[in-house]
């Protein structure tokens, strides 16, 4: 079997405004289930995940759960753990209207850090990214330019951004072009 690789292997760009990096293969599992059902929180906690609140990301950058909709979560973990995590969640929620799927290879994920990170993303996403409105732990599913994406902020104020893998190269080029310009640190 071929080795796992991302859409933009080892891509990294340190611009004046922000640094964008591809962190290599990341494990991602989509969980569709009624998040109000206590069984979901139980199944998550059995796997070491906490149920995030509305539009929040609960956990550390490399391991956590992001709120995607009232019935959808994105779980982030190590690449090798994702298939087992999807199986374990399916078993934990057996008999319920729920679905856990390993989507690690269907997504691309970037880390965006630096003083201009907020301004860079705000160029393409219709989101209020001022510190008063968007802080660590906040997550938003929206668009970047013309493509769908989701991003959340870690404790260190660095962004994690996910998009479809087929758009990974485009999104990286978009971010690189934006970070090369002197982004006004308007936030």
């Amino acid at each position: 079997m071929a080795d796992a690789m991302t859409a933009t292997p080892a891509a990294r760009f340190a611009g004046g405004a922000a640094t964008i990096s591809d962190l290599g293969p990341v494990g991602m599992v989509t969980l569709r289930a009624d998040l109000a059902d206590p069984a979901v929180a139980e199944a998550l906690s059995a796997q070491g995940f906490a149920l995030p609140g509305l539009r929040r990301f609960a956990g550390a950058p490399g391991s956590g759960a992001g709120w995607f909709s009232p019935d959808e979560l994105l779980l982030v973990t190590e690449y090798g753990r994702a298939p087992g995590l999807a199986t374990a969640l399916s078993e934990g929620l057996a008999g319920r209207h729920a679905l856990a799927v390993n989507v690690s290879d269907a997504r691309a994920m970037f880390r965006i850090e630096g003083r201009g990170a907020r301004g860079l993303i705000a160029k393409g996403a219709p989101v209020d990214l001022s510190p008063a409105a968007f802080g660590p732990g906040d997550l938003r599913r929206t668009r970047l330019g013309q493509v769908a994406c989701a991003f959340w902020m870690g404790e260190d104020e660095a962004f994690s951004l996910v998009c479809f893998r087929s758009l990974g190269a485009h999104v990286f080029a978009w971010l690189r072009a934006g970070a090369a310009l002197p982004t006004p640190p308007g936030f």
Binding site: L54, R55, S69, P70, P126, V127, R140, R141, T142, R143
Partner: peptide, 11 residues
């Protein structure tokens, strides 16, 4: 009304 986001219409 589902996620509480106030967004502009392109979203």
């Amino acid at each position: 009304p589902h996620c509480g986001v106030s967004g502009e219409e392109t979203e």
